[in-house]
Each structure stands twice: as structure tokens, then as C-alpha cells.
Design a binder for these strands. Sequence first.
DNA 1: TTTCATATTAACCCAATGTTAACTCACTAT
DNA 2: ATAGTGAGTTAACATTGGGTTAATATGAAA
Lengths: 226, 226
Amino acid sequence: MKSSKILLVDDDEDILDLLEYNLTKEGYLVQTALNGKKAIEVANEFLPDLIIMDVMMPEMDGIETCGEIRKNKLLSNTIITFLTARGEDYSQIAGYEAGADDYITKPIKPKVLFSKIKGLLRRGNIEAELVEETASMKIDREKYIVLQKGVEISLPKKEFELLALLMSRPNNVFTREKIFASVWGDDIVVGDRTIDVHIRKLREKIGDDYIKTVKGVGYKFVEIES
Amino acid sequence: MKSSKILLVDDDEDILDLLEYNLTKEGYLVQTALNGKKAIEVANEFLPDLIIMDVMMPEMDGIETCGEIRKNKLLSNTIITFLTARGEDYSQIAGYEAGADDYITKPIKPKVLFSKIKGLLRRGNIEAELVEETASMKIDREKYIVLQKGVEISLPKKEFELLALLMSRPNNVFTREKIFASVWGDDIVVGDRTIDVHIRKLREKIGDDYIKTVKGVGYKFVEIES
DNA sequence: TTTCATATTAACCCAATGTTAACTCACTAT
DNA sequence: ATAGTGAGTTAACATTGGGTTAATATGAAA
């Protein structure tokens, strides 16, 4: 298991030290930044899985920084979590708009923080693996190739990514929202039928039985037994 | 969407009734307790997501109760909010130390209360239960699948959510209102028979014995012993 | 018995999904 | 430039089955 990388951003060095110490002890790879500018630099370099960032910072605040970070495509899978003082509700709205994934309120309770971090990383790690494999199907992100019972199938990008997503968790239902978010990206808006068509093309190529529709919920990949 | 569970604690039964009525109507699962001791019992059993508790109570006051509740690890994610009369600031300090997360001042304005509750729960709801399990039945929200003695049963959305709700608290009776609020949502109005039909479909699939009718009250999920 | 809540059955409706083909756009080869 | 190609999207229509309701039956309680 690859250790998850966490970037901590806060202008209070004490908090940074405290969190860094504890998270390192938990087995995470931690880097810190004292301000937004620094955070962007480090993020681009370090490519963290999770960023925990104070909303209130001198110079460039968390929300602005968040927006900048979201511009880097390499960080599109990075989860951004804000630290906010209790009751700063106005900031939450702006924060979500800027692309934040979650909030942690001060004062920080270590237990809450850790369980939250675990949960967040689990969500984000969905498609970390480069090669997914089930009994009769293998997918290789690096080579952009799908092998079905040893036979190579070539898929165009979107179909490939869609299949890769579904295969990343066999039997798990992915909602349309999640599929859109993952394959297309949150910002891009495409029609509702687009996804069906891609599903259909996939089914044409790999057979109808691999992708199951869960009406009203989404789609899932199932391994079929002959 | 699983409904959030709220525990109300106050020695004034009128307030309990009022809040219970309104919160249930909003789709929450509500339980009440008249004093601190009862609150601890119920909390340990009910595992609420949020506890709203009067500070001033006979016998065991809110702060002491809060301290007790915080000792239960299963309740570590539970948010505790105090009801306090305006100006009782001294209690706030003690309250935070005891582990309270927020305050609501009396007199209570319903709109303020609801928006506050929503905010609090959104923060706390990071990780709702994904799997519920009893001796012979397991339900998995991510896979949208029910396993009965290892045998996979697939259910349509509404049936699935209905079963999930009932299984979230085995042996607990869910009133029709609560079921509607949770599975359908308050705004949507459907006929009274709809629920019976779904119960019937469920029973057809998982067997008659799991879901018991409590006439005049509601339905409950019971684990059957062979 | 009478009443009221729930069970049962089957028919109906419609929103979600499937399907097909056309259209756009980028890229390539001619 | 022009035409060809294929991925991706959309539009238009078909289909399906989940969800709801209506009508009737059953059964428990008062």
C-alpha cells in the first residue's frame, strides 16, 4: 500500500507541527506550507492526495488558493479540505464553489480528524491502481489496453476511462454524478444521454453482461461466470 | 439517503414534543429523553448523529451528561449541541470543555434551528454507514445489494432503501411517517398504500418473516432464529 | 358486528434508460 | 484546400420496469 501524501497549509506554525507530527506517526507522507503561494508551489511538485488548508490566511486566503490549485489538472484527484473556525458559515459556501471537498472545524479533535482523513482518502483512492484485473478482464491504464480473456480490445479514451472507473470497484454501483465527475470532470456539462451511449458502445465491444444497470442509481461492473 | 438520527433531551415535555414533531416532519429520525440518565441510555442504543440537549436539567445536568456520552467510543462522531437560555455564557465554557460542539439559544426559532441542524449534520455526516448486517442478512449500500445467507438479492431502489432503513435499526418500529420522510422525502406525497406494496414486494423477495407489521404503529425488521 | 388498518392483486403511468442515426470537431491523408 | 476518418456528443424516438394507485379482500380490535 502506497502511503497517501498530505499537504498541510496554515499560517500558524504550531498547528502545522502538531498535525505533521501526528499524521506522520499515522504513516502518511506529510509536507507543509505556511501560506497560499507556497502551498501552490508545493502542491504542484508534491502532488498530494489530500490538502488540508486553513481558510483564513494572510495574503492569499484558502479559497483563492484552492481555486488556483484546482487549475492544475494533475491535481484534479486531490481532495481539498478546509479548516474553518466554527460558525464561519459564509465561507463554506464560497469554499464549495472554489472546489473544496470537505470541512474540518476548529478546534480540531484529533480523532475526528483522523477518521475524516481516512474516509476522504478512501474516496479519493478509488482509481489509484494502474492495472485492474478480474477473472476474465484486465485493464492497463499505462498501456491503455483492455484484455478480455487474453484478447486485446482497443477502446477510445472516454470508453476506456468509463470502463476503468467501473472496474476499479467491481460490483460497486457508480451513480451518474460520480461517473460524470470522474470521466468528464465536474465542470464540464454534457447531456444526460451521453453516458448511456458510451455504456452501449462498451457493451457492444465487451458484451452485454459485464455492465449492469441499476435503475435510478447508476451502473456497475460485474464479473460474469460462465 | 439515510436519515440522520437526532436525540432530543429536555425536561420539558412540551419542548420535546414540539421539536420531535417538527424534526420528524423534516425527515429526521428522532428519539427523546426527559433526563440525563435516560439520555445516556438512549444514546448508547440509538447512536444518534446529533444530540440536542438542554443544559439545565434536574438531577444530571447537560454538561455532566455530555461528559458521560463522550466516554462512549461509538458516539465519538456524534455532535452534541446545547440548548441554553440567552446570556448563560458561563455554561458555554464548561460545555465546550465537556465536548459540546455548538449552542442554540432559547427561545428557539425553528428556522434557525433547522438551518443549524442541517449545517451541523452536513459536517458530521461524512461517513454514513455503508453496510448494515444482522445474523442472516447483510445490506451493502455501495454495491446496492442484499445478501441473505450469502445469497445475493438485487432490489430496486425504493425497496432497497426501505429495507436499508428498517435494517438500520433492527427490532425498532418505524412509523409510516418516518418511513415516508426517509425513503421518499417530506415534500413528495404518495398514497398510503404505496408503502404496503413495497413491503409486500420485499417480503416476496426476502421472506415473510423478516418484516413484522405492528398494527397501528408501523413496521420493523426482526432477525429470525431458525 | 362494525370498524379501521393492513394485505393483495392487477392495472396503469411515466421517468429513466436504451437505441439509432445524425452532427460536430479535430486530425490526417490526399 | 479538400475529403476522409473516428471520437464524442446530441437529438429524437422506443422501450422497459419501477413506482403508484385503485379496487377489493382480509383480519384484528373495540
